[in-house]
Simulated scan of single mutants.
Amino acid sequence: MSSEQQPAQHGRDRRLRIAYSPCPNDTFVFDALAHGRVPGAPALDVTFADIDVTNGMAERGELDVLKVSYAVLPYVLDTYALLPCGGALGRGCGPLVLTRDATLSGADLAGRTVAVPSERSTAYLLFRLWAADVVPGGVGDIVVMPFHEIMPAVRDGTVDAGLVIHEARFTYRNYGLHQLADMGEHWEDTTGLPIPLGAIIARRSLGEAALTGLADAVRASVRAAWDDPEASRPYVMAHAQEMDPAVADQHIGLYVNEFTADLGEDGYAAVRGLLTRAAAEGLVPPLTPDALRFP
């Protein structure tokens, strides 16, 4: 985890403490806001952390604004509000289950060990819903490990399969691995809804005016990145963990879309649909009727 201080060029004196991942979609979305290029927006103190870390921060009530898995929302919505923008939700962008053996099917995972990036991740919820439909008797042991360690573990035979996210969609063949199943494809085929992955949440105690202003600032930051993608490139590549620029561009193109600017009706339906189905399977607590209300 690392922290980066940004100069307060615009907005109120109080800095908002925010944590998001160093992945290209997050740095692309927040570049203009983090560097004071959104007039009137609050200044930020930025902490970079993987999603499993930010999920834990949210559950402990740390920081003002966080990028988290949609799967963690039922545990934190008393303290945080879901922003209607800035997150990752879309089509054709779901987590993948990878194996070394190209001949395996979903049914073959029964009783086998699977590595996952977090048990409180949206990827894991999608995986559990898929496994309930496809894997008779369920998978075996679940091993939680940082997402960048999963593909090497599958390649080396440490685990039988791995659930991967982020840029692994574009790089898993480099490890000699094979796609067994696409969790997003299963979700879209069974629901017709887009795939909810990562959410932006903000502390409710900031107040309605501040939350509304923050959402407006995030939207402005997204539009600024779309209007001038090259302006965000230094920030994106500085935190992309030696990622190839072409892969970073693919990553941004897949995860930053119209739902990033505004969840809209389909986005909210996808979020509620995922969490309702997960609650029915006993994977998360049920949502209250107004839990997703903003602000």
Rank of each mutant, 00 (worst) to 15 (best):
M1G: 15
S3N: 14
E4N: 01
E4H: 11
Q5S: 14
Q6G: 00
Q6P: 03
H10G: 14
H10C: 06
I18Q: 07
Y20S: 00
P24T: 12
D26E: 12
T27M: 15
H35N: 09
V38Y: 07
A43E: 08
L44S: 01
D50I: 14
D50S: 06
I51W: 10
T54V: 15
A58H: 07
A58L: 06
L63C: 02
L63D: 01
D64W: 04
V65S: 02
L66D: 02
Y75F: 13
Y75L: 13
V76F: 12
L77T: 15
C85I: 09
G87E: 07
G87P: 00
R91N: 12
R91D: 02
G92D: 06
G92H: 05
G94W: 14
P95G: 10
R100F: 04
D108T: 13
G111L: 14
P117W: 08
E119R: 09
L126I: 13
R128A: 05
A131K: 02
V144N: 09
M145E: 11
I150D: 01
M151Q: 10
M151A: 09
P152V: 15
A153M: 06
A153Q: 02
R155F: 04
R155T: 02
E167A: 13
T171K: 01
T171A: 02
T171C: 03
L180Y: 06
M183W: 00
E185G: 08
W187F: 06
D189K: 11
T190P: 08
T191P: 03
G198H: 11
A199Q: 02
I201K: 08
R203W: 07
E208G: 11
A209D: 10
A215G: 10
A224R: 12
A225N: 10
D227I: 07
D228S: 09
Y235Q: 08
Y235P: 00
E242Q: 05
M243A: 07
Q250A: 05
Q250G: 04
Y255V: 15
Y255G: 09
G264L: 08
D266P: 04
G267I: 10
Y268H: 13
A269V: 08
R272G: 07
G273W: 10
R277T: 03
A279N: 03
E281Y: 10
E281R: 15
V284C: 08
P285K: 15
A291H: 09
